[in-house]
Computed example of a mutant assay.
Amino acid sequence: MILNDYPWLSLPYQQLASGIIHKRTHHALLINYVQGSGEDEFVSMLANRLLCQSSQQLEPCLNCHSCQLFLSHYHPDYYVITNEQSKQSIGIDQIRKISNKVYEKSQQGGNKVIWVKRAALMTEAAANALLKTLEEPPENTYFILSDEHNSKLLPTIHSRCFSYFLPVPKLEISIEWLKKLHRQQYNDNELASALLLSENAPLKAVALLMPEKWQQRKKFCDHLLDVVPQNNYWQLAKTFDSEDFIERIIWFCALLSDALKAKQKVGRFIVNRDQVPLVRLLATKSNEKISALYDLWLQARTQLLTITGLNKELIVYNVLAQSEVIG
C-alpha cells in the first residue's frame, strides 16, 4: 500500500477516508498539492476506496471484484480526465463526454469516480460544462479534481468543491525517508538542499537526486565558482543546452536568494546547504547587484515559459551578457 511507501500521506488519507466510511464524503473533492509529494498515488488510493465494495476500514480491501478491476486499470466506473497528448488544455468535448457517462447506471452497481487531473488546464468552456454537473451531481458519483497549489481554477469550480491541501512532510521526516532510499550516497546537507529546492516535496527531490541530474547541478555550481570572480558568465554557455536553461535559472536564483539571506545574517534559512562557499562568494556582491541578477534571470524564465516562438539560445546569450554588465 502507498501508505507504507509514503508515510507522510497516512494522516491526510485517514482524514479524507474517514468521510467515506461514515458516508459524509463531499461529492466533489479538490486536492491541491506541491508537485512531487505523492499526489497521484494519494488520489488513486482515495478513488480505489470509493470504488471498493467490501471494505469497512479506511483502506480498500484490494480483494473484491471492484478492487481487482481498479488494480488492473480496467474499472468501468472510474474515469481519469487530463489534457490529451500534444494538447495544452482539457477541452469541452472531454467534459461533455464524461458528463453523459456519469448519468448512466454504474456498471458495477457501486460508486462512480471521475478524476480530473490538472484541473486548471480546463478551458473556461470545459470548466463551465463541468460546473453544471457539479451543481446537480448524480447519486453515488464522486468527482476528484487535483492540481498544484498555485494553479488558477475558476472560483465557481472552487465554490462547488471541498478543498483540501495535501501537505508536504517536515524536512527532518523527508531527510530520513530519503536516507533509506539513498543509504550513504548523500550527506544530510545534500539531502536537505535537494528537498528545499523541491519545495520539500520528497518525490521531486528524488528526481533531482538522480545521479546524472545531481551531477549537472554540481557542475553548474562548480562553474559558477569559477566565472563569478572573473565576471565571465559567458563561459556558462558551454556547460548546458538552451533546453536546460530554465532549470539553471531556478538553481541560480535560489543561490542568489541564499546570498541575500547570508548578507542579512539569516544563514540558517538558506536552501543550498551543500554550496555554502558559493553562497558566500555571491554574498560578496552588493545587494543591488544580487537583486539585479535575480530579476534578470527570473525575467528570462518568465519569457521562456510564457512566450512561444522565442529563440531560446538568444535569450540565454542575452542573459549571460547582461549578467556581465551587472557584474
Rank of each mutant, 00 (worst) to 15 (best):
L224W: 05
K179Y: 02
L282S: 10
K289G: 00
Y186H: 03
K117H: 12
E243T: 12
V316E: 02
H73I: 00
V279G: 00
Y164K: 04
G109A: 01
A262N: 09
I2P: 13
L154T: 08
L320Y: 10
L9K: 00
P7D: 03
Y79L: 15
V116F: 10
K170G: 06
Y6T: 03
K219C: 11
K238E: 15
G91I: 12
A17E: 01
N200F: 02
L69F: 13
T82H: 11
S242F: 07
N128L: 12
L191W: 05
Q68E: 13
V279K: 01
S323G: 11
Q264A: 14
E136T: 08
C221P: 01
Q107C: 11
I95R: 03
F162D: 04
L282A: 04
V206M: 01
Y33F: 15
M122K: 05
T306F: 04
A259K: 04
A119G: 00
Q264C: 05
Y13S: 09
E104V: 06
W8Q: 12
T306A: 02
A47E: 01
W251G: 09
A283K: 13
Y164P: 03
N111W: 08
L130Q: 06
T239R: 11
Y294S: 06
H65W: 02
K23E: 11
K152Q: 07
H158I: 02
W214F: 09
E212P: 04
K180D: 08
A283E: 14
Y79S: 14
Q15M: 13
Q108I: 05
L51W: 12
L16P: 04
T156F: 05
Y294I: 06
S198M: 10
N83E: 13
R248M: 08
M1L: 08
S193E: 13
V168G: 05
L298R: 12
L320G: 08
C67I: 00
L282Y: 05
I315R: 01
D244L: 14
L320T: 03
L304E: 07
Q275D: 10
C161S: 11
Q107N: 07
Q275K: 15
L154K: 01
D222H: 08
C61R: 05
A254Q: 07
L11A: 13
A127V: 10
C61M: 01
W251D: 13
N4T: 10
F70W: 06
R49F: 05
S174H: 06
N187S: 07
T133Q: 07
A262Y: 15
L62K: 09
D147T: 15
Q303W: 14
E135C: 08
A283I: 07
V319W: 09
H182F: 15
C161L: 00
W297K: 04
